[in-house]
């Protein structure tokens, strides 16, 4: 907010913001530029303006694939998408059901379950990687889509968010529904679910980004190239040892890896901001 007119300060304000936005965008711009040149140009002359090999580089990445990785970027993007959507829909569905049970029923293990879910909030995959890997191996989940998805879909955050929301739903709605002789599942699908639309949309955006950006877990459980996600693929492209990394292809793949989550943030900004602030409560 501004309470007095100070032209110099206004100038400084806009200058700082524009500079900030430019610095934040700079690495992406350089990456994009590099993805439109030949390897020769990228590694020798540090181009600052886009070149003419955009279509060639992206087509090669998408359909032929980078050297030494054994999967095309097209395949890896599909894997990333399956993982991201699987995690998103999985988390939202199991959280909705669990929150519904905890809020709308009284049962003996309710408090126990609540705390079990709460504990998961505290234990990110990073702190228990080896034993979690062992469970996945024992369940034959290595190199599979369920293996990429299931270990990441337990989320206390989503469950709490829906629980919080359900608490604010007026009791009269439930009462009226019961007087009309409706059962709990009808109430869930006909009344609760439509009312949760905005919360679901906000969570969808946050969870899609979370799912798409998973790295450590897919790194552990995928050794078969056909299950590589794009982020794993990009890292593999960099590991060429003594050889020359194909920077123009790596940079094209990097742009493709950023595109889906960044577009989601830009075009669903309202849901994104809502999701960010709500999940932190």
């Amino acid at each position: 907010m501004m309470v007095e007119h100070r032209p110099v300060l206004t100038f400084v304000t806009h200058a700082t913001l524009i500079l900030g936005a430019l610095v934040l965008a700079f690495p992406i711009y350089v990456t994009f530029v590099a993805s439109t040149h030949t390897l020769e140009v990228v590694t020798k002359s540090f181009p600052l303006l886009p070149g003419s090999h955009l279509v060639e580089n992206y087509l090669r990445a998408l359909t032929v694939g980078p050297r030494d990785v054994g999967a095309t970027v097209g395949t890896m993007m599909l894997n990333s998408l399956i993982m991201a959507l699987g995690i998103t829909f999985g988390k939202i569905s199991i959280s909705l059901l669990a929150a519904f049970a905890i809020v709308y029923f009284r049962f003996r293990l309710r408090i126990v379950f609540f705390w079990m879910i709460f504990i998961t909030l505290m234990l990110p995959v990073e702190v228990r990687i080896l034993p979690t890997y062992k469970v996945a191996a024992d369940l034959k989940l290595l190199n599979s889509y369920p293996g990429l998805i299931f270990p990441l879909i337990a989320s206390a955050t989503a469950t709490f968010l829906f629980r919080q929301f359900f608490m604010t739903v007026p009791d009269e709605l439930c009462e009226a529904h019961r007087i009309d002789g409706g059962g709990p599942m009808r109430f869930f699908f006909d009344i609760l679910l439509p009312m949760s639309r905005t919360s679901i949309a906000a969570l969808f955006v946050i969870l899609f980004i979370y799912g798409w950006n998973q790295y450590l877990w897919p790194l552990l459980i995928t050794s078969d190239q056909q299950y590589y996600t794009l982020l794993i693929g990009i890292k593999r492209m960099l590991d060429v040892g003594e050889g020359q990394a194909e920077w123009q292809i790596i940079m094209a793949s990097t742009i493709l890896a950023m595109l889906p989550p960044v577009l989601v943030v830009i075009f669903m900004q309202k849901q994104f901001v809502r999701g960010m602030t709500e999940t932190e409560k």
Binding site: F113, V135, F150, A154, C174
Partner: peptide
């Protein structure tokens, strides 16, 4: 909640997916 549903089995079925994943992977 003041108003709740009465059912002995249903709530366990509803929390089951979340609890199974939590126990197995956490």
């Amino acid at each position: 909640k003041r108003v709740v549903f009465k059912n002995r089995v249903l709530p366990y079925i509803l929390v089951a997916p979340q609890i199974v994943v939590t126990v197995l992977f956490f």
